[in-house]
Design a protein around this nucleic acid. Structure first.
Ligand code: MN
Ligand code: MN
Ligand code: ZN
Ligand code: ZN
Lengths: 144, 144
DNA sequence: TGTATATTGATTATCATTTTCAATTAGGAG
DNA sequence: CTCCTAATTGAAAATGATAATCAATATACA
């Protein structure tokens, strides 16, 4: 299962970097992988604390950063001042539809757009390392 | 000239909202329209202070927000924790190529991509109100 | 010119995230 | 298994960008 691929990838990262495997990191990773996508740090922290009251906010922040560094997660910024994280397997990619009314986030992928992005970059002699594309507006529900 | 169109648009906004025309707002607008694009609040503040030492940081922040509200400027967030502003005339739009090495920012517009974005949104019953697309990587110069 | 109201700049507050640091833990050597 | 060292943790303080406060000042209109 993908969950195990991510766990294994993080385990390898920990080993490769000379870091240590800890109870907290295991707990946070388990929760992160089973929680819903695009959770803010605060949401993850509150969710974790329900079962693990001792866990510190700083540890959650640090651990999520490690997830991003290890490649099993991505930081997302939707402009509301909250950092969100989503887990993904290496090489996966998608963009977002963000409802500005209810906050619902939908994901999509469009190879044609990505090809055109590459073409635009090429015409500038620019080498793309990453990109972000977000469409903001009203989801089907909020559009009534 | 476009500069005058923007000045006039802001003047109208000021009047329409029952706000007042002030020396500071004039100074900040002049500098903003003549400075290079995508300046951060800090950069604009420092640039302004050279000629106008009395001007307050809070006033710069507030005034830039007013520019955005009036429609003559846009807030931009590239994920480095700095808010940038760029001026544009009503209806104009473009996206960005951001060099992660030297910080250079190029602008582009691609109608085909925008049409595809619309198509993606439609297929989700989503109504786009705005969007952002940024390509991060190496500019021609930094790619060597 | 007078007056009500908006604006300014300095200061303080916010708020999410980072850093600090003493105490604790992990995990390899012996 | 026991030591030992370096990594990790949680609480608290620091950070950094922006926003709010507020007394003093400037603006615009009657
Ligand atoms: Mn996503
Ligand atoms: Mn631009
Ligand atoms: Zn919605
Ligand atoms: Zn560059």
């Amino acid at each position: 299962m993908k969950r195990d691929i991510k766990k294994e990838a993080f385990r390898e990262f920990i080993a490769r970097e000379g870091l240590k495997s800890t109870r907290q990191r295991d707990i946070i990773l388990d929760f992160f992988l089973s929680a819903k996508r695009h959770m803010s740090v605060e949401e993850l922290y509150r969710g974790l604390r329900a079962r693990h009251p001792g866990i510190g906010y700083a540890t959650v922040c640090r651990t999520l950063k490690l997830f991003a560094q290890s490649g099993i997660a991505h930081e997302i910024h939707f402009g509301d001042g909250q950092t969100r994280y989503e887990h993904l397997v290496e090489g996966e990619h998608h963009d977002h539809l963000v409802c500005t009314v209810c906050g619902t986030i939908a994901e999509f992928e469009n190879k044609t757009i990505e090809a055109l992005q590459k073409a635009v970059a090429d015409s500038h002699g620019f080498i793309i390392r990453s990109h972000r594309m977000e469409l903001y507006g009203l989801c089907a529900k909020c559009a009534k």
